[in-house]
Amino acid sequence: MQTLTNRAKPVDRRPMNFLEKMYLPAIGKGMVITFKHIFQKKPTVSYPEEKREFSPVFRGLHILNRDKEGRENCTACGLCAVACPAEAITMEAAERKPGEEHLYREEKYAARYEINMLRCIFCGFCEEACPKDAIYLSETFAPAHYKREGFIYGKQDLLIPLPGEQKNA
């Protein structure tokens, strides 16, 4: 018969001899194997103390970027929401008032910007679609929540903190 791979081994169906029926030699062999495992390197990552390193292309939670003067980059153009295959992004635009120039870079900004992390598939299309370098995917992942509402991230969760300002987690 033609075999798919040539790795197939015929099963040995000979009756066991006396030594094999005593099981002891086979048990000894097995115990040598388990003993060797004592000295092997453990692949465990002790999570809270030690974190697994992400690859440089890892796509995690989103952040909304600011420019060098601390002004929000986002102009609420909606390209990210259009690009999003999971329809996770919602936003509302607003016009910048005089006197708010230090807050927003352009004359239009996002008054509300929400990403539903339960819908998001972390594809990174929003990052690619953004013409203003306003949205990036960081190297953290969404923490657990007790309720669905907790997974809808608003602007206060997404915006990177101003220099010198502590973001409360």
Binding site: T34, H37, I38, Q40, K41, K42, P43, T44, S46
Partner: peptide, 10 residues
């Protein structure tokens, strides 16, 4: 744990 390449209770 150690024989299964884990750390065991720690």
């Amino acid at each position: 744990g150690i024989m299964q390449d884990r750390l065991g209770p720690n």
